[in-house]
Design a protein around this nucleic acid. Structure first.
Lengths: 207, 207
DNA sequence: CTCAATCTGATACCGAGCATCAGAAACATG
DNA sequence: CATGTTTCTGATGCTCGGTATCAGATTGAG
């Protein structure tokens, strides 16, 4: 370690800075290790010290990378929410809000089909661990906040008026359907594709 | 206390036992004190020791009444969920699932109208405190579990088949609408009645 | 090379929650 | 009333997540 990290040739150094790259690398490794340990011994059965020790970091430093233990496996969801929101705004205006939401969720269904095994155990852990499930809901709440403006636009109402509950209700309901579909998907071991279950779930609402 | 509680005449003694009554009384007082302190100084700004001290109980004993700090203000929601589920099953079969859900929620809207001020500060605290919000979601999840069977019955599907996402989606979406309405209600300071906002929210879904 | 900014580990601290234990109170007996 | 059993209580100590502080090492700019 002393040798490999020692002045890695100034020619290959990028403008983003060396320190920054290290940070990204470490973050990625922490997530990797944490995810593995959580699946192996459960979320509550794994201590932060354990993760820190395995990564080769002190507890204090680890908390500088991730504010909470949950964030080590949930932070990725923040980015995912952004992708969904992006996909939503990209849908044509010819689609109604509900249909557009359904299509935006394809970001998720496609990702799941590419790595079903991994996603399955991940979601299973999320649903079986109370503290994680709780945080997961908060993430979904942040998703809702991201989706809301575009839904408001499509409904033709202003987004920041309290008594306009439409956008909030619509995006929240859609996420509830997504949750229902995900729950069903996990429950049947991924037998029925997520996209199908999502179609059923969201179809139930439009009759 | 030594006199009043001393063999209180076996004629007036109730079958529920004296010990049981004490337990109920203490629980109620804890909730009262906790709620007051939480609203006064915030949820995180109040320690369990503080509550225990004010009630005149030790920390350990307090945790025998309520498993977690959050439960001291959220336990009541469990019962509320039962009331909603009860109201739901009481709705006539002529109503569709969505309409029946809307009507079942009147249990809440009516309760809110009876004590708006108190409910408002309570909900505000719930939404502003991250840890409480998270637990609140879990409660709603338990509500969903309570509503699901009846919705499944009304949809004519069996409740325990994983790929039947309909009941879960419907009840989840309804609760999302309830949440949206509650959020809007708090945001506008209770100016618009909760029932009206709930009508709008749930109406958005049926077009 | 030098100096400021950042990062790190060590340490101490706080609060929630759990486990244990001796003593006190409540209950069901005779 | 006296008894023994059960349950509750308070006290203590512990684990773990999370925060704050501080001296020393590392990075990066001038």
């Amino acid at each position: 370690m002393t040798d490999s990290a020692r002045t890695p040739a100034r020619s290959a150094t990028k403008p983003p800075g060396l320190r920054e790259r290290m940070r990204v690398t470490v973050r990625k490794e922490v997530v990797e290790v944490a995810l593995r340990l959580f699946i192996e011994q459960g979320f509550d059965g794994t201590t932060v010290d354990q993760i820190a020790g395995e990564v080769g970091l002190s507890r204090a430093s680890l908390f500088r990378y991730f504010g909470t233990k949950e964030d080590m496996v949930l932070q990725g969801l923040e980015e995912t929410g952004g992708q969904i929101a992006e996909a939503l705004t990209a849908r044509p205006d010819t689609e109604g809000p509900w249909e557009a939401l359904r299509r935006a969720f394809d970001v998720l269904t496609q990702a799941n089909e590419q790595a079903p095994e991994q996603t399955l155990s991940y979601l299973r852990m999320l649903q079986e661990t109370p503290s994680l499930r709780a945080r997961h809901f908060e993430k979904q709440l942040s998703w809702q906040a991201m989706l809301e403006p575009e839904i408001a636009r499509r409904l033709g109402v202003s987004a920041d008026q309290p008594e306009e509950v439409g956008p909030n209700a619509l995006s929240g309901a859609a996420l509830a359907c997504l949750d229902a579909a995900a729950t069903g998907w996990v429950a049947c071991g991924g037998a029925v594709p997520l996209a199908v279950l999502l179609d059923r779930a969201m179809g139930t609402l439009t009759e």
